[in-house]
């Protein structure tokens, strides 16, 4: 299984990857993307099984990234990992086709709860 982690912060990408490992997903290959545009390109070239994306990013936001994927016909499972978890954003995320939204700061439990069933 392959997971694409898109975040413009290298430090946050490392924390997301570390938390994935702590949550028990340590045998998955991880691909990193620097923003939504890079993520979009890498979904096409790497064909991941799951995308974990930040929302607020330069060049292409996480929401635009998800919308671009769905417009292009990609149905790759997609979840947000973002510092904003308001009801409004959760609704926008769900409307665009996201499976879940994990708000930062997150714990390994919140990763397990949301990823269970998506990565089996």
């Amino acid at each position: 299984m392959k997971i694409l982690v898109a975040d413009d912060s290298r430090v946050m990408r490392q924390i997301v990857i570390r938390t994935l490992r702590q949550a028990g997903y340590d045998d998955h290959e991880v691909v990193e993307a620097e923003d939504g545009r890079d993520g979009y390109d890498k979904v096409r070239s790497e064909n991941p099984d799951l995308v974990l994306s930040d929302w607020n990013m330069p060049n292409m936001t996480g929401l635009e990234f998800l919308q671009a994927l769905r417009s292009s016909g990609s149905a790759v499972p997609f979840g947000f990992v973002t510092s904003e978890g308001s009801a409004e954003m959760r609704e926008k995320a769900a409307d665009a086709g996201a499976l879940f939204l994990i708000a930062k700061p997150f714990t390994e439990e919140s990763f397990r709860e949301n990823l269970e069933g998506v990565l089996s």
């Binding site: 430090v11 946050m12 510092s83 904003e84 978890g85 308001s86």
Partner: peptide, 17 residues
């Protein structure tokens, strides 16, 4: 810069909420 910025981002996101 990245680390300090990301901490402000997470705190800021939760303050915004």
């Amino acid at each position: 810069d990245d680390a300090l910025g990301e901490l402000a981002n997470v705190v800021g996101g939760n303050v915004k909420a």
